[in-house]
Structures are given as C-alpha cells and as structure tokens.
C-alpha cells in the first residue's frame, strides 16, 4: 500500500447463505445489531467495529480475517 484509500471487503452474504440460508434479520438478532447494519455491511457501505466483526466471526465459526479482508480502492 502506498497510502491509497482502502475498504474492508467481507464475505458475510456468502457465509449467511452457506449457513442454511440464514436471513439478514436472524444474523442481525444474533449479532445484536439492526438488519439495516447487516445490509450496509454486506454492501460494504459500513466498516464494523472489532466487537461486531468478532461477533459475526463467532456466529459463523470462522476466523475474523477470513470474513473481512482489506481491499485497496
């Protein structure tokens, strides 16, 4: 990286579908956030806090770095 802007890509939608077609609302309830936040996360319009990222990682039983990856833009 040479100081360019970066965004946090994620595979939440893919993981949700792999986990028995979990709905956005179900994930939101389990992650203790709103469905709007899940939609914003999935569409990479919102960067979560470490706490929320780790809650989501725990729900999917996947390391947090496998769900969230830094992407240069």
């Amino acid at each position: 990286m040479t100081g360019e802007r970066a965004t946090l890509a994620n595979s939440i939608r893919k993981l949700r579908l792999e986990h028995g077609d979990m709905t956005q609302q179900e994930l939101a309830d389990r992650a203790k956030c709103s469905r709007q936040t899940i939609i914003m996360l999935e569409q990479e319009r919102y960067v979560p806090s470490l706490v929320l990222a780790m809650r989501i990682a725990r729900i999917f039983r996947t390391p947090v770095e496998k769900i969230f990856t830094l992407r240069d833009i």
Binding site: D29, C33, S34, P48, L52
Partner: peptide, 10 residues
Amino acid sequence: RDDGKLDERD
C-alpha cells in the same frame, strides 16, 4: 440495553 435495539452504527 445490550440487545441491539441501538447498535454501534446507531
């Protein structure tokens, strides 16, 4: 409360 009614984005 900590039930997600008011989450971190809110």
